[in-house]
């Protein structure tokens, strides 16, 4: 049985990634925060008696389910907005924000130009992630960002190991091509990729 301290420690280590992961999926920061909050509470409510080693899997599964519920509600709402906008005439969902303005840049000690380049890279990566098909993004996030193995990812996603591998490689493929299209070689990602070994 997990102690409240163990739950707290676990959540503190995953919450930031969980939030961004959700934000990429639902493309709405506020909704993402709500979803993460719900998922945290559900973990405490339903699985507080489990050992903390099981938390990463459980939490991811809850998070994915909560997101799925969000999609379901979202579909209904979108239907309404499109119905309404066909009457009213103005398109409500044109939220084409300038990504460079909305990112909150921490004070890294790096040179400003490097920091700027890195922020642009981040913007492009985030954008590319948002554009991925949901299943591919899910596979990519779980397998590579949450560093789960293929079997765990498959269990959370409710599919076979084989299709996890397929989703993952398609996701990386699509991300790489998208980034290449955006000319990321000028922004330093190519170095980031090729310098590592």
């Amino acid at each position: 049985m997990a102690t409240p301290k163990e739950l707290s420690d676990f959540l503190a280590t995953v919450e930031r990634r969980a939030f961004k992961q959700t934000a990429y999926a639902v493309r709405d920061d506020h909704a993402a925060l709500d979803i993460v909050q719900d998922a945290m509470m559900k973990l405490a409510e339903k699985y507080g008696d489990r050992p903390p080693t099981e938390f990463p899997m459980l939490f991811q599964r809850i998070l994915q389910n909560t997101m799925r519920d969000f999609w379901r509600r979202q579909k209904v709402r979108n239907m309404w907005t499109s119905l309404l906008s066909s009457f009213g005439g103005n398109d409500a969902d044109s939220e084409d924000r300038d990504p460079l303005e909305t990112i909150d840049v921490g004070d890294d000690s790096d040179e400003p130009s490097i920091q700027l380049a890195r922020n642009q890279t981040i913007q492009l990566i985030e954008h590319a992630l948002e554009k991925l098909p949901a299943r591919q993004r899910e596979a990519f996030v779980l397998r590579y960002w949450e560093e789960m193995d293929v079997a765990e990812t498959a269990e959370i996603m409710g599919c076979s190991d084989g299709s996890v591998k397929t989703h993952c490689s398609r996701a990386v493929h699509a991300l790489a091509l998208e980034l290449k299209k955006q000319g990321l070689d000028k922004l330093g990602l190519s170095n980031a990729i090729f310098d590592r070994k």
């Binding site: 981040i122 990566i125 990519f140 990386v172 980031a192 070994k197």
Partner: peptide, 18 residues
């Protein structure tokens, strides 16, 4: 594939710090 994914998640990890 793993290398590209790793580079991308490095950026993402940096992102969540801000």
């Amino acid at each position: 594939e793993a290398q590209i994914a790793q580079s991308i998640t490095d950026f993402l990890n940096n992102r969540v710090q801000h």
